[in-house]
């Protein structure tokens, strides 16, 4: 059975698109047929992060409005056999998204894909609402920083009330899990950054993963490669662990999966930087 997973956060710039790309690629690497949809109408960016920006012909909005068939708008990833991207429109605005249109596209995708990852725009308006509305599960991307945690709490409230599952009124709920990004173990240990437990205590949802602050994230974005394809990087590894948990595996939580590989000087530099 296919699953619709929304990657959301409320706050902008916390890593929703990076996480959507990394999770989508991670699922495809495990052999699951996966599509990542960009819901940020007017500010298309998933295509750049996934490196297919030169191949966009038709988009999500064209499909919703009947100007193109779904298979014409889907872009097949060149690196991973099971990975597809559904880009959004760069020229329309979020009003082009309709509840009925989104449902029709998701229903059609459900017939063919194992996982449908919805990359939500920032904010809590139409685009973000529709990205989460039909979700079965949610990945709430949060930085260990006050405004991000506050916004995540607000988004969790919306997941519990303004989604198709919540509106059924039979106790169904979107399964929400926390993805803590840009985490710095050293700063947290020094008391400069909230700890994982601090954030978990406040938000009170299960932890999907901890993504360490890592230089490989900017490199991946520069090159248009999902960071989970960089299996040597701490962030790439952390995303792959998170994907394993997302599909139900028990994987030990490591604050920094790359830590044991770092040498003495790197650790020294990491601490002073």
């Amino acid at each position: 059975m296919s699953k619709v997973i929304v990657v959301t956060s409320g706050k902008g710039g916390v890593g929703k698109t990076t996480s959507s790309a990394a999770i989508g690629a991670g699922l495809a690497m495990r052999g699951h047929k996966t599509v990542v949809i960009d819901f940020d109408v007017g500010l298309r960016n998933l295509d750049m992060i996934m490196g297919c920006e030169r191949r966009v012909v038709f988009d999500f909005i064209n499909v919703i409005q009947g100007d193109a068939k779904l298979k014409q708008a889907l872009i097949k990833d060149r690196r991973l056999e099971n990975l597809f991207i559904l880009p959004t429109s760069q020229t329309r605005d979020k009003d082009a998204l309709t509840k009925e249109g989104v449902k029709a596209v998701l229903d059609e995708l459900r017939e063919e894909f194992d996982y449908i990852v919805c990359d939500s725009p920032a904010g809590i308006e139409r685009g973000a609402h529709l990205a989460m509305y039909y979700a079965d599960e949610a990945v709430v991307v949060t930085n260990p920083e006050v405004s991000s945690v506050r916004d995540s709490d607000r988004v969790l409230g919306l997941l519990n009330s303004k989604t198709a599952l919540a509106e059924k009124g039979d106790g169904s709920a979107v399964k929400a899990q926390l993805l803590l990004t840009r985490f710095d173990q050293n700063r947290s240990a020094n008391g400069e950054m909230m700890s994982v437990d601090d954030v978990l205590e406040i938000l009170a949802i299960p932890l999907l993963g901890i993504i360490p602050e890592s230089t490989s994230v900017l490199k991946a974005s520069n090159e248009g490669t999902p960071v989970s394809l960089d299996e040597k990087s701490p962030a790439g590894k952390a995303y792959l662990d998170a994907v394993g948990r997302l599909v139900g595996e028990q994987i030990e939580m490591r604050a920094n999966p790359g830590e044991q590989r770092r040498g003495f000087f790197q650790r020294l530099l990491g601490r002073t930087a």
């Binding site: 750049m48 920006e53 038709f58 064209n62 100007d67 193109a68 020229t91």
Partner: peptide, 20 residues
Amino acid sequence: LLAHERSSGAKSPDFLPLLQ
């Protein structure tokens, strides 16, 4: 990317469905 986006302006976004 930006060279294409800037040059296409406001007129062209929907030309592909029309072309089709």
